[in-house]
């Protein structure tokens, strides 16, 4: 990865693009999703490439309004890449179909990759740490959550935006075809799963209140089960639900099932 020196104009454009790329979900519609943010992010760049009100400018704006959806962080990367491609297009080196195709081709893989890095891994870790602290009444947990999960996204956005712009299309072939993305996703998955497992042990419980009178004294069923494997019922409940999700159950149905189970259980004295 060779570092490219940016001109003063490029630097100011990239800075504006970075700030605007933070508006990913503004006026999000199911038809165009993040297109408005993409247009706004690209606009400072387009203004330096095309003349105002020229047909080329209108075409470029129209292109920027096509359906767009990915994770909030790689939006900056794709915008940086599009900046480079639009520049090449103005010089006649890249045609519009390539711009459209690369944008469309990158949405899926980047969304998957950054969901697994930020959403399923970093967020879970940050929340795990924050929950531990906040439970003790320490507001520091919330602050750490913002720093670990929020601020890091902004830093990543800046790095990816400049990387996308300076590396251009050559980069895509290297990274996406090398197989490293799958490895990265899998390793983030290991970390994410460990955290989910840890938090399941901390928080998920099936609080049954059954006791059996053996004559010699009361036996608390929950204690018996926990002595076999701590929190066994919670783990069983979790994997029953994982199976149901794989069978196509919606989260709302699971919530409904638990409510009915809990209310019926409370009525018959199970809880």
């Amino acid at each position: 990865m060779a570092k490219k020196e940016f001109t003063a104009q490029e630097n100011s454009v990239l800075k504006q693009m970075w700030l605007r790329s933070h508006m990913t979900f503004i006026n999000f519609s199911m038809t165009k999703m993040e297109a408005n943010c993409f247009t706004m992010t690209l606009m400072p760049a387009l203004k330096t490439i095309y003349e105002a009100d020229s047909p080329e400018m209108k075409d470029a704006l129209q292109r920027s309004q096509s359906f767009f959806n990915t994770h909030a962080v790689p939006l900056a990367f794709i915008a940086g890449l599009t900046y480079a491609m639009e520049k090449d297009h103005a010089e006649g080196k890249v045609d519009t179909t390539t711009i459209e195709n690369i944008k469309a081709a990158l949405m899926g893989p980047t969304a998957g990759m950054f969901d697994s890095l930020f959403f399923n891994c970093l967020r879970v870790i940050a929340a795990g740490i924050a929950i531990g602290l906040n439970r003790q009444g320490n507001f520091l947990g919330s602050v750490i959550f913002i720093l670990l999960y929020g601020v890091t996204q902004s830093i990543a956005k800046y790095l990816l935006l400049t990387a996308g712009y300076s590396l251009g299309t050559t980069f895509i072939d290297q990274v996406f075809n090398s197989g490293l993305i799958q490895v990265l996703t899998k390793c983030a998955g290991v970390l994410g799963l460990m955290m989910v497992g840890a938090m399941t042990a901390q928080m998920v419980g099936v609080p049954i209140a059954l006791t059996i009178n053996t004559g010699a004294g009361e036996v608390v069923i929950a204690d018996v089960i926990n002595s076999i494997f701590p929190g066994l019922l919670g783990v069983i409940l979790l994997f029953v639900m994982v199976n149901l999700i794989k069978k196509g159950w919606r989260p709302t149905q699971l919530i409904g099932m638990i409510f009915i189970f809990a209310l019926v259980g409370a009525l018959i004295g199970l809880f």
Partner: peptide
Amino acid sequence: GLGAASSMMIGVGFAILT
């Protein structure tokens, strides 16, 4: 019942994540 449900409901989120 609602109280019992709340500690089981945490499992729903974790099940989706898992």
